[in-house]
Design a protein around this nucleic acid. Sequence first.
DNA 1: TGGACTGAACGGACGCAGTA
DNA 2: TACTGCGTCCGTTCAGTCCA
Length: 340
Amino acid sequence: MMKNQTVNVAQERVTIRHVAEDAGVSVAAVSKVLRNAYGVSGSLRGKVEASIEKLNYRPSVAARAMRGRTQTVGVLVIELSNPFLPGVIEEANAALSENGFKALIGIGRSASSIEASMIESMIDNRMDGVVIIAPRISGKVLERYARQIPIVVIAHHEPHAETYDTVNSDDRRGGYLAVEAALRAGYQDIAMLSYDLLDSPATIVAVQREEGYLDAMKQAGLKGRIIRLPPVAVDRQQAIRNFLDAKDRPRAVFVWSDLDAVPLINAARTRAIRVPEDLAIIGYDNSPMAAIPLVGLTSVDQNQMQLGRTAAEVLLSRIDGRRDARHLLIEPHVELRGST
DNA sequence: TGGACTGAACGGACGCAGTA
DNA sequence: TACTGCGTCCGTTCAGTCCA
């Protein structure tokens, strides 16, 4: 019979002092080698590197943080299922990595209380900065946290924030471009499918897209019509079916996000509604799903890669001491496919 | 004289001993 | 029991020393 045995191995952490002792040099000399600092001879470097290798030494991030930086940045995302996020995170991570920083990801689960707790953990763990994507917490709360840690926010329009930076796709412009694309394709009866924003502030991207949609419709001399889905995703399926079955269904629809546009195109086809012959659909985000040939969804591209890289660069400059706030907008474009 | 190297101070959190 | 002060942790930084 097998027995569980408890093996107690005393594990002493290898510190810079152990390395210094092994190499026969001072602690400061080891630190200089680690930081690639000026004033280190080749022979000293060789001895230190040999000892580091021999002892399998790894510097303590916590100790480094006492005087300087941890070289870590938190990336707080709303959820993982949103197809908009991978491109943003990958490119932000690449830009941070090129500058010697590591990105650690937290998930806010669309709840402001969880987001707040995650940001506090990132502060407590002495991270050098935070990239927050599509936060639920208010700008006021963000202002408070930004006094403790450099913050850059993506997908949150707050152009007057003074203590943190924002990097956004120009969502208002994106809504405008979606209508322009529909008009060019010959449609006039264009509705927008959004969701119940429940008095959301203008910081929300969907509010900006609605404003862009209404602007473009007004400019074309047309009357805008916004149809709202329930705020909870599980209730939306029935609402989408109701929209498709409605007698006054528009000829074309601009959907606030591919998150709802892809289910809409799927529901339309299962109900034998031809896309685009019976209903033209334009989504937003240009997610990988939109590009699948069987989906073929025309969608507004936010340029996720540029959003991620720009956000990382803005954060790094704030970590380096910049104090003035920057609020950047990235120009979107429409990716035309078969749904229009 | 200047490059190479060292010693000590420093930082925030936490545990522990001593004192009121 | 509450409070205070000290020591420890460990990597970085800077002023100072050594030596060719």
